[in-house]
Write a protein that binds this DNA or RNA. Structure first.
Length: 431
RNA sequence: GGAGGGUUGGCAGAGUGGUAAUGCAACGGAUUGCUAAUCCGUCUACCCUUAUCGGGUAGCGGGGGUUCAAUUCCCCCACCCUCCGCCA
């Protein structure tokens, strides 16, 4: 959500930002609505003030005195005024909700260094780490390897749950858990994130706060009753950012850093035909997610730091990756700047997204009314909220299988996972 | 799922239709040989004014209703507590 006052201060900058996002100019439109709202609030309040005075007058008339003509007249006038107030309020509220609806549809403003572009081909390479393995044999895809290990089962997953789910057995089931634990340990012990276990079902207002609703409802699994819909979370970001909705934090509490390992659910409408095999695009997957709240002045540094935390996981796993700065057209709705981490997949011979780290500025805090206060100062400010995957566990598993495979389908995992795999780093293909 | 009791400021705690007592704590200010004590003040959002000062509207878990007027009456919902049932 945008601050209409900020838009009013610099409408040209706002329109320019929307243009980068591929949207039409509308600052003047919004400002006109804002002015209307202000005017009607003034009128309503003035009339209400008069009305309150009348009420007070009535209350001062001793009740044990029988209504004389005077009192009856004051009450009659108050009744008439009430009708007027009711009408004015309705008009005022209609104007307000019209503007709000428009405002809610608009994505966050990209910051200055975000490259302009309509799609991923305009994303900018920031840095690379590691080099893709040079196999002398034809690299197998991770799902092929998984089946050779007799540890990845798509047909049975489809039988019980439908397409785009997976069942893992034995060492791969353990690897899922091992990776999550490894990631959580690094983030909590070394980077100071607070570990959180979260619900994976969230209320409408929570997903509204993160910016996933109302616009992207078709991407979500909706359950519950009509009166009380709830949603399976598409990412732990929704719940972690929502933790402080409607709260006023103290500046000294910031930054707040949270990490959660959770299942994520995506309906992925319109994605049919893409990545239909393997772990890359499932309806359910698990992810270790980082979320930070900072003061506005520190969110840029926090964004770099957070991206570094995610990169560290890839480095320690010895996976080749690159960091991309997303262009305006490829960024998510709530983000003002996003880095994607892309890991090398040896079978596809391509870098594929494995993490997305975004600075959302005050966009989400404003939507969910999360604020902070500075000691000794009046008023409240909106903190900046950031989120990043570190990492998507299924895609990490896919990358490990593909990049550490041997010619016979056996996989030897990197030593850093040794304590998490119970000392058993070799995944043997069945004969 | 059923029955009952609750939700008021940082905390405690009054308030059965007339515009939120009181206590404690913390913070700021005044006063003051020091300490202490005392006195004054304290929230949030928005609107008007704007250099400030100031004025106004709203907020008693959330939403609706009745009323000139709602913390108070009515309806719906959420959460907490006690008990019963069910359950991993």
């Amino acid at each position: 959500m945008h601050d209409i006052k900020e838009i009013a201060k610099d409408p040209t900058a706002f329109d320019e930002a929307m243009r980068k996002r591929g949207l039409p100019q509308q600052a003047q439109d919004l400002i006109a609505y804002y002015k209307k709202i202000k005017a009607s609030i003034s009128v309503v309040e003035m009339v209400q003030a008069e009305h309150n005075q009348r009420s007070e007058k009535i209350s001062q008339t001793p009740s044990d005195i029988k209504d004389d003509g005077n009192k009856a007249m004051v009450i009659k006038a108050a009744k008439e005024a009430k009708q007027q107030i009711t009408n004015l309020k309705k008009i005022s509220e209609d104007t307000k909700s019209t503007m709000l609806r428009k405002l809610l549809e608009l994505p966050n403003v990209p910051v200055a260094d975000v490259p302009e572009g309509s799609d991923e081909s305009f994303n900018k390479l920031i840095r690379k780490d590691g080099s893709p393995p040079d196999f002398r044999f034809k690299a197998r895809s991770h799902d092929e390897i998984g089946e050779m290990l007799d540890a990845m089962d798509f047909p049975r997953a489809a039988k019980v749950s439908g397409a785009r789910f997976v069942v893992l057995y034995d060492q791969l089931a353990r690897l899922e858990r091992a990776l999550a634990n490894f990631m959580l340990d690094v983030h909590t012990r070394e980077y100071g994130y607070r570990e959180v276990q979260i619900p994976v079902l969230a209320e409408w207002h929570t997903l509204y706060g993160s910016g996933h609703l109302p616009k992207f409802e078709e991407d979500l699994f909706k359950i519950g009753t009509k009166e009380r819909p709830r949603y399976l979370i598409p990412t732990a970001e929704t719940v972690l950012t929502g933790l402080h909705a409607n709260e006023i934090l103290q500046e000294e509490e910031l930054p707040l850093r949270y990490v959660a390992w959770s299942s994520c659910f995506r309906a992925e409408a319109g994605a049919a035909g893409k990545d239909t095999r393997g772990l890359i695009r499932l309806h359910q997957f698990s992810k270790v997610e980082l979320v930070s709240y900072t003061t506005p002045g520190k969110s840029k540094d926090e964004h770099e730091r957070m991206t570094g935390c995610a990169e560290e996981i890839l480095k320690r796993l010895g996976l080749p990756y690159r960091v991309m700065l997303l262009c305006s057209g490829d960024m998510g709705f709530s983000a003002e700047k996003t880095y994607d981490l892309e890991v090398w997949l040896a079978a596809q011979k391509k870098y594929r997204e494995i993490s997305s780290c975004s600075n959302c500025g005050a966009f989400q805090s404003r939507r969910m009314n999360a604020r902070y206060k500075r000691k000794g100062q009046k008023g409240t400010l909106f903190p900046h909220a950031l989120n990043g995957s570190a990492l998507a566990v299924g895609r990490t598993m896919a990358a490990l299988l593909e990049n550490y495979q041997q010619s016979d389908g056996t996989v030897v995992l990197p030593a850093v996972l040794d304590p998490y795999m119970g000392g058993d780093l070799t995944l043997l293909a069945k004969s």
